[in-house]
């Protein structure tokens, strides 16, 4: 561990974040978008753990933050997927370009 610089973790996390961002903004499929968001959350968690280990290893806050963030991710996935299922049931599609009820 000690011979890996902190910036390596940050770079990997930001790469993962950008890949997730690309997935979330460019997929047509609503479930694909949700998967992109989950990957982005993971990237943030890597950063949190890295900062905990390298900057405040004696405090617990970093780890608690990660556990809470995982909880939020799980809740988000549960509700998000339920919404997608509801949309699929009423409109018979998961392509979000077909779902434009609130669009001008």
């Amino acid at each position: 561990m000690p011979d890996i610089p902190l910036s390596w973790y940050l770079i990997v996390a930001s790469a993962l974040f950008c890949i997730g961002l690309f997935g979330a903004l460019s997929r047509r499929n609503a479930i694909g978008i949700l998967m992109g968001i989950e990957v982005m959350l993971n990237a943030v968690n890597i950063n949190l753990v890295a900062f905990w280990r390298y900057i405040t290893p004696q405090a617990l806050t970093g780890q608690v933050f990660v556990i809470v963030s995982i909880t939020v991710a799980a809740a988000e996935a549960a509700v998000g997927l339920a919404l997608i299922l509801a949309i699929f049931r009423s409109r018979d599609t998961v392509n979000i370009e077909d779902v434009h009820l609130m669009k001008w």
């Binding site: 940050l10 770079i11 930001s14 790469a15 974040f17 950008c18 890949i19 961002l21 690309f22 903004l25 460019s26 997929r27 047509r28 499929n29 694909g32 370009e97």
Partner: peptide, 20 residues
């Protein structure tokens, strides 16, 4: 599998990555 704006999004993501 991608929507119409995917090239733009890819550029933005790459730019963001460079910045980070």
């Amino acid at each position: 599998r991608f929507n119409d704006q995917w090239m733009f999004v890819a550029a933005v993501s790459a730019f963001l990555f460079a910045g980070l």
